[in-house]
Nucleic acid binder design. Structure first.
Length: 619
RNA sequence: GCACUCGUAGCUCAAUUGGAUAGAGCAUCGGCCUUCGGAGCCGAGGGUUGGGGGUUCGAAUCCCUCCGAGUGCGCCA
């Protein structure tokens, strides 16, 4: 086994030592290896002694001593230090650390370009369902987090080696199309321009107003729903035009956002239309009303029955009590078919899950939607499990996130209370970034020997910084909470922001440009690394820990952990940059430092790429 | 009423899922430009982790209980 991470390596060494201490037939114990919070406690620490003390009826300090005597770290760490009640502080040898990042991470290992991250031993087929905007409407801030987060999950899981299927579950079906079809029978449809969605969104508002005022129009709209669903060519033609133009607009936004979703990832609600009736009938068969007196299974059960004219599934726990209740205290059903016969999103989600499990044969489905839909997903997962459509081997995750709030702490809206259009928000971010770039250029123009940036390159930088800032600001927060949107903070150079990270990267590129100008010696892959300065060592250790962050993001779907790592990496580099001259250093030191720069740049670029953020050589 | 999320420095956020003296950025105050990009770096002050109990070697983290904020709860998605 390749112990690509230092953490893995230490775990296995300490597990062996603890096994020795405990004796032969003891169950394996987690060695509790943690990263030390303070450099004076070493690089890592083993915290197992305290918890083992009681079990061995010995003093924690003595247990720590026995572990320290048993563990084989001669080649990788300085002698262990026992501190406090029984902490074992581990300080890696400089030579080992240098060799580790040079050999394992530099691409001479079996996973070149992966910075030491090995592909998973158990690749799974994973669906990531995200973004999911509504056809005939502009995307707004409400779609931002799902789109950005879902894209990172797809990138990271794919990087880890899983077979990722992206699904854009767009809202392209439903009663609103009746109104639009009826409306466009009397009015021209907007052309497939960039403003198509803005126009259809306005038309929808007009159609909806007319629907409520004009009984004749309302009737035609209702009939149009039926015509669409029964495949009437005219109705379908209008619908298809709307869907096609909408998709083109979505794709433009995805390109702008550097999101990987393509036209082929679109599998809208309409796709499942033909499967809904069978889905509901299957539920009716699977969940008959229970005879009284039959013992309830431990996992609970479901009942299918009509209630107030709607076809419903009711969920019960192991005691036969309703799992969910409404505000009136009555049991709360999942409605799978309305009293007028129409289907709802619960039926669509169930049909989609069946399709994915049976036809796409996936091992895991990740739904990226906001936290407000939590109850829906709990109920829907519950039905899918009880129906057997989601067997225990199929992992289901509802990845939730909070709302985007404005500076006043309320959900982000325009002054007139409208949703903020996504393209407008992104354009403003790029415009603000461009202003900063221009300001910086104007200041630096006075510097001797400065070659100004071409207008085209300035624009490219502004896009990378502006879009990167919006994405990074979102991703760097723990997704569970709401998050305060602030252009000023996200475009700030200080702190955990995209510009700070991009600046660190650009500084490294600048060193390489300068090195190439002066003479041709840049980093040679065989250069020996020496870590004599504190800043060199700290940077090297940070680089070696790249895989730890990736592991956490992949396991817990928490991108902010990767952001925090990259911030620490960039900050470590900045300190190194201040303390350790690279190009002025001579011979071996210079080669070694160039190597550190190269590794830092690679880690930053790969990390940011997994976050869907573009790096730039100058800014 | 029930359920979920959250409450950490004046502000915006972390805390490797139970580890040592709770860390960053902003703001405030003070240092560093004849050296590779100062969009930078270093330092100082700033905390009863909403309150109170409990669990244990050890709690921001787990349990109970109050307080406060947000969200959801039958035919929208």
């Amino acid at each position: 086994m390749v112990e690509s991470h230092l953490l893995d390596l230490l775990r296995s060494r300490f597990s062996a030592a603890i096994a020795t201490v405990l004796g032969d037939n003891a169950a394996p114990i987690d060695p509790l290896i943690r990263v030390s919070q303070d450099a004076k406690f070493g690089d890592y620490q083993c915290n197992a002694a305290m918890s083992l003390a009681k079990r061995l009826s010995a003093k924690p300090h003595d247990v720590a001593k026995r572990i320290a005597e048993s563990v084989d770290l001669g080649d990788i760490a300085e002698p262990l230090e026992i501190a406090g009640p029984g902490f074992l502080n581990i300080r890696l040898k400089n030579d080992f650390l240098a060799a580790h990042i040079a050999d394992i991470l530099a691409g001479s290992d079996e996973f070149p370009g992966r910075l030491g991250v090995a592909p998973t031993a158990q690749p799974l087929r994973v669906i990531v369902e995200y973004s999911s905007p509504n056809v005939a409407k502009l995307m707004h801030v409400g779609h931002l987090r799902s789109t950005i987060l879902g894209d990172v999950f797809g990138r990271v899981l794919s990087f880890i080696g899983h077979d990722v299927i992206r699904q854009n579950h767009v809202g392209d079906w439903g009663t609103q199309f009746g109104m639009l079809i009826a409306w466009y029978a009397d009015h021209p449809m907007p052309s497939d321009s960039v403003d198509f969605l803005a126009a259809t969104e306005e038309d929808y508002k007009l159609a909806y107003a007319k629907f409520r005022e004009d009984a004749e129009f309302a009737e035609r709209a209702r009939l149009a729903v039926g015509r669409l669903q029964s495949g009437d060519p005219d109705a379908r033609c209008v619908w298809q035009q709307i869907c096609r133009a909408s998709r083109a607009a979505f794709l433009a936004t995805y390109r702008q956002l550097r999101v990987l979703l393509t036209d082929e990832d679109v599998r809208g609600e309409s796709f499942y239309n033909g499967r809904l009736a069978d889905c509901v009938e299957s539920l009716r068969r699977l969940f008959p009303q229970r005879e009284p007196g039959i013992p309830t299974p431990s996992e609970g059960f479901a009942e299918f029955r009509e209630d107030a004219g709607a076809q419903c599934v009711f969920l019960y726990d192991a005691k036969g009590q309703p799992r969910y209740k409404g505000p009136d205290g009555n049991e709360l059903p999942v409605i799978v078919q309305k009293k007028d016969g129409a289907y709802l999103y619960a039926s669509t989600d169930l049909a989609a899950l069946r399709f994915r499990a049976q036809d796409l044969k996936v091992d895991r489905i990740i739904y990226v939607t906001d936290a407000r839909q939590k109850l829906h997903f709990q109920m829907f997962f519950g039905i899918a499990r009880l129906a057997g459509w989601a067997p225990p081997s199929l992992r289901l995750d509802h990845v939730t996130f909070g709302s985007v709030l404005g500076e006043d702490g309320t959900p982000l809206k325009t002054r007139d209370g409208q949703n903020v259009k996504l393209h407008e928000l992104l354009e403003e971010a790029v415009a603000r970034a461009a202003a900063v770039v221009d300001e910086n250029e104007a200041r630096r123009a006075a510097e001797p020997g400065y070659t100004p940036l071409a207008a085209e390159e300035r624009a490219r930088i502004a896009r990378a910084v502006g879009i990167g800032a919006v994405k990074y600001a979102d991703l760097s927060r723990d997704r569970n909470g709401d998050y305060l949107f602030s252009f000023d903070r996200m475009l700030s150079m200080q702190g955990n922001t995209a510009p700070y990270m991009l600046y660190a990267y650009a500084r490294i590129r600048s060193i390489y440009r300068k090195a190439a100008e002066r003479d041709s010696t840049t980093a040679s892959p065989s250069a020996r690394l020496t870590l004599s300065a504190a800043a060199e060592r700290a940077l090297a250790l940070r680089i070696a820990r790249f895989g730890e962050a990736i592991d956490i993001v992949a396991a817990d779907l928490l991108p902010h952990v990767l952001c925090a790592y990259l911030y620490d990496l960039a900050a470590d580099f900045m300190r190194f940059y201040e303390e350790c001259p690279v190009l002025q250093a001579d011979g071996a030191t210079r080669a070694s430092r160039l190597r550190l720069c190269d590794l830092t740049a690679r880690a930053l670029r790969l990390g940011l790429d997994l976050l869907g953020i573009e790096t730039i050589d100058r800014m």
